[in-house]
Design a binder for these strands. Sequence first.
DNA 1: CTGAAAGCGCTTACAG
DNA 2: CTGAAAGCGCTTACAG
Lengths: 341, 341
Amino acid sequence: MSQPSAPKRRRATGRVTLQDVAVAAGVSPITASRALRGERGVAADLVERVQVAVRELGYVPDPAARALASAKSNQVVLLVPLLSNALFVDLLDAAQRTLLQAGYQSMIGVTHYQPEEEEALLRTYLMNRPAGLLVTGFDRTDTARSLLTGSGVPCVHLMENRAGDGLYSVGFSQEDAGRAMTQALMDKGYQRIAFAAAQLDPRTLQRATGYRAALGDRHDPRLEFMDAAPSSFALGAQMFDRVLADAPDVDAIFFNNDDLAQGALLQALRRGIEVPAQVAVAGFNDLIGGEQMLPPLSTVRTPRGEIGLKAAEMLIALMRGEAVEQPCVDLGFELLMRGSC
Amino acid sequence: MSQPSAPKRRRATGRVTLQDVAVAAGVSPITASRALRGERGVAADLVERVQVAVRELGYVPDPAARALASAKSNQVVLLVPLLSNALFVDLLDAAQRTLLQAGYQSMIGVTHYQPEEEEALLRTYLMNRPAGLLVTGFDRTDTARSLLTGSGVPCVHLMENRAGDGLYSVGFSQEDAGRAMTQALMDKGYQRIAFAAAQLDPRTLQRATGYRAALGDRHDPRLEFMDAAPSSFALGAQMFDRVLADAPDVDAIFFNNDDLAQGALLQALRRGIEVPAQVAVAGFNDLIGGEQMLPPLSTVRTPRGEIGLKAAEMLIALMRGEAVEQPCVDLGFELLMRGSC
DNA sequence: CTGAAAGCGCTTACAG
DNA sequence: CTGAAAGCGCTTACAG
């Protein structure tokens, strides 16, 4: 015997919809929707009934329908230069975790330090009408900048700070960090301090500015070794050789990233050059492995995990329309003086 | 003087819609939709007119509307255990790039090697009705497995191979790789070969199986050092000490990952233990930095970039409903014998 | 090869 | 505090 009466009408897709939940709970779909989203102003007993219906029916909201109706998705776009720099992995991990807990999904985009690539990614991802945006630094194409502002999507900048109208950022002063390490080397008595950098992204150049500022009159442009190639162990080894060849009188080398410095340390070992006795070495970022080196690498610890967390929190507040009292958060840095200088 | 006749009706959002494009091109919305998606069976001149209209109006399709109407998004979910292992970064980079070129966006999820976390991510991301899925390996909760199959979303498995009904995978034999490196060590005359592993994820255990198989009768369980802690330089150094302390007669140590092996090499340097004269060291994965070590690290090169690329291509074919003749692609591996053994 | 109709599943105003 | 109506922007059958 078949069902005596027609069961309540099902959608063609067979999906359990908000409509079904509403019917089961004995309320209108709008009330069900409001109850579901935790909108206040719904009677407690109705909320209860809706929640029960959701559980019984195994209802799962459809993000696409939600996005279409509300013109807003639950996705957040995270744009970083590289995944192969552990720095950004730590940043992403913290941000993604925080966002997920607040109910946001993250779309990770990798720009490979190419402004054009960032612009293209922005264009692509903005189509989704993301709820929020996390981008690295402030250097981008004008088009990218106007895409950002024109979209009206809340946006927090990572790694650097910049005050300005409607600008939100969580980071630290790359310049101060560059200056502080250079100063620390000077305080230890090093006289001929080289700066060796790869990639030459905006933040690296800011560190270079800090290096110069610390040296002041004693700055010697011949001690700056800038290589636009990507940072790596192998390049660090090469640059170490280059510095010693071109400026045999250096007594310290400040590398703009730990992988370079670690590569240099290995090269010193290979060549039998004593660190820090013959030449001191310092790095930047406190990446994994630095304290395992021989000697342990002195470096600047950068708070990328904290940046990811704090930036995500700030963005969540913005997405919820809450007030953000501190739009420009400086999380500082820390000098880690170990054995290499 | 105002416009003589009512301009064509605009949506409240002010958004340029497919409707607008259709009007401008003088076709129906359906035809515009078909032209846009490159569906064949649309007259060439109409396609042309639609494309012109799209360009002139600056039309951007709405993924949410598309997803709602078609019950399918253009997003692909990529699930990996960790971002801090460079292996997976290479994998993701290749896959993401390939997918993007084909018009798919990727949602990266990190499971931290926790099956429960993978299950939760799957549940969350499946709500989006992704077009495809890329997951790591075959070990997951039963629920996760049925979520996968129940969703009906095309799925390709990464890193391992398994034949089976409707199973797609791109990887290599972890067991064979473990066996091959062990055999290579035996061929070089090493007698007491230890296996030192961290994380103890499924693929690591498969390598252990290969290690045992290669040794056969000569396998000594006391030479297996398994530590469930995450892999790192520091742990590699610790394990190196532990192996030498517990089994002073070992003449070779096969680490399940390069970071462990690199940490061990640094520890050997620190302790003045000669590699490979006193003890040989081998790693796995050929991560960055291995060839910079002293001595350069012997390891197994794993084709993760190729896996990411090939898996993405396979998934793209599946998502397009094309036939995939080879559902189980073994990309092999390569022994890299450098100075450490 | 092209189109009119209906619908995807939700939320936004607007009422009451 | 609750709801009926309309609409978000697209695509899927179904015709012709």
